[in-house]
Structure formats: C-alpha cells, structure tokens
C-alpha cells in the first residue's frame, strides 16, 4: 500500500465529540478553556439581562434567546468540537435536521397555540365581539334608536 495512515485520516470522518489532532493534553485543554470562558460570559449576560431594569422590557426575551443560542453554539464548537470541515459533514447534517425538527415543533406549537388562545378568548363583558375574520359581520350592528332586545349591546 502506497498510502499512509495520515492520508486515510485526512479524508475520513470524525466521530462527534472527537477532535483530531489533539493527542497532546495542552492543545485540547485550550479549546475547553475558551469554551468555559465564553459560556460563563454568556450565562452571566443572560442572568443580568433578565433582572436588569436598564433594558427596554420587550427586548429582554429577544436578548435572552440570542444569548441562549450563542451559548449552545459555544458548547457545540468548544465542548463537542463540531467544525465545518469535511470530516464533520455527517455530524453537522444530522444536527441541522435536529435543529429543523426542534424549530418546527417548538415554534409551530407556540405559534398555533397563541393564535388559538387569541381566537378562543372569552367574550368581552357585555357584548359578543369575537375576532374571527375581519369583514364578516357575525351579527348586524344594532340600529340607532331601536332598543336592544336581549341586552347584548354594552358598547354604546
């Protein structure tokens, strides 16, 4: 065989979590230290943002989600050693599919249930005003001057 062992490794896959070449202790430690520092920083930022009064309140969930996604990325890169290299293609593609399913499952549920909650809200006190479809009157507008038959119009 003319090919060497390193030739094989250069084109082969890498198991998830493995990082080659990190046979030496020190080189591998560096990646974990960077990861620990970044994760600590992002965690501290998350807890600070959640409790601070400085930030505009509606921006806080957006900031929290941003920090969380960033921290997951830090964990994936520095602890699980995922790279964009060709030896990691399979690992990345599996992860991408997982992320797609998570996004559909979580985002879809929240989106659908939010709209359902909105549509099934209890009727407003003193009148039926269901926000179903715009432009389709559920009941005719009460005529001016004509007394209400069943006391349904509290919005005069």
């Amino acid at each position: 065989m003319s090919h060497t062992d390193t030739d094989d490794r250069a084109h082969a896959d890498v198991a998830p979590g493995d990082e080659y070449p990190h046979e030496e202790f020190g080189a591998g430690l560096r990646s974990y230290l960077i990861g620990l520092a970044l994760a600590t920083l992002l965690t501290a930022a998350s807890f600070w943002v959640a409790q601070t009064k400085v930030m505009w309140a509606p921006a806080i969930p957006v900031a929290l989600l941003t920090f969380a996604i960033a921290q997951m990325g830090v964990h994936l890169v520095f602890f699980l050693h995922l790279t964009s290299g060709p030896d990691n293609t399979n690992n990345i593609m599996a992860l991408a599919f997982g992320v797609l399913i998570v996004f559909l499952l979580f985002g879809g549920s929240v989106w659908i249930m939010h709209h359902m909650n909105y549509n099934m809200m209890a009727p407003v006190e003193g009148g039926v005003r269901m926000p179903l479809q715009k432009g389709v009157p559920l009941q005719p507008e009460p005529q001016k001057g004509v007394p209400m038959q069943h006391g349904g119009g509290g919005h005069h």
């Binding site: 896959d13 198991a15 493995d18 599996a94 499952l105 979580f106 929240v110």
Partner: peptide, 28 residues
C-alpha cells in the same frame, strides 16, 4: 468508533427533539 459515535449522536438529537416537545408544552 465513528459508527458508534454517530449513532449516539443521532440518539442525542432525538432526545433533544423530545425536550423540544416538553419546552413547547411549557411555553404554551
């Protein structure tokens, strides 16, 4: 080693999908 690691990686992703369902339930 690569076959085992990859298989376990798929399992972990499926576990994360399960957690996503619980997270969706919590958010709702």
């Amino acid at each position: 080693r690569i076959v085992v690691g990859y298989g376990f990686w798929i399992f972990l992703l499926s576990d994360i999908v399960m957690f996503a369902a619980f997270f969706a339930a919590f958010a709702v």
